[in-house]
Amino acid sequence: MRMAMRPSSGAWLILGLLLLWEVSARLDWMHTPNWPPLSTVLAALLHDVFSGELPVLVGGTLWRMFSGLLAGGAAGVIVGLLFATLPITSRLFGLTIELIRPIPIPAVIPPLVLFLGLDNTMKVTVVALTAFFPVLTNTMQGVRAVEADALAMGRTFGIGFWRRAVHIILPACLPYIFAGFRVALALALVVTVVAEMIAGEQGVGHYLVLMQFAGRAPEMYATVIVLAVLGYALNRGFLAFERRTIHWYFALGRMAD
């Protein structure tokens, strides 16, 4: 709240844009009923929230998103650590992964439907695939950035491969891994919704398309607002979680944020 008071706060711009939305729709600048006033959209939003319909859909979408994010992210960390510590694995699988990475995920959803169906299996897989790559690249980057002193000290104490990986390399990589997860988180929400829009009768994505086809613009924009707020909240929540988990890293003063 204190933030909103300051004249330099970014919140003023948002308020201004929302006001522009309301005015432009009220005065029908766009000459279309498909640009409803913000107040109408908010009324639709409140209705859908209190009818319990949207909360259930958002819950389903979040569940799919987090399942995919955790599965894909965990795989990314494991593969990343392997690639960076055992060069043979990276020689064997690196090319395959580099070839799969640039494929836009929405392009492979229709063929994936053939193998994985239309429900959670397909959607979670798609999200996991999306989350995998940023976490993988960041983990590998993190391993390379582990300080040589730390490794040397481990060697001096004569600890083995596994202990070195778990107690020295992994903690040292954590800030990088978290950065990877933060990118993956943003992508995961997008991809979950896209997958829901393309196939199956689930979640916010399906609701969005259904409302669009039913000609209910206020409900559609209400869903868009929900997604914007959700994305913002997820990012803020993640940052808070990151600060708690790797507070030592921030204590080192490496991030000026």
């Binding site: 229709p110 439907v113 169906g117 239309l118 196939a199 009768e201 399906h206 398309v209 259904l210 086809f213």
Partner: peptide, 19 residues
């Protein structure tokens, strides 16, 4: 169990795939 897809793009391919 109806599966609604607004665009209908997954209908016939889904039938072939046994979905």
């Amino acid at each position: 169990d109806t599966s609604t897809t607004a665009g209908g793009a997954t209908g016939l391919p889904g039938l072939v795939a046994g979905q």
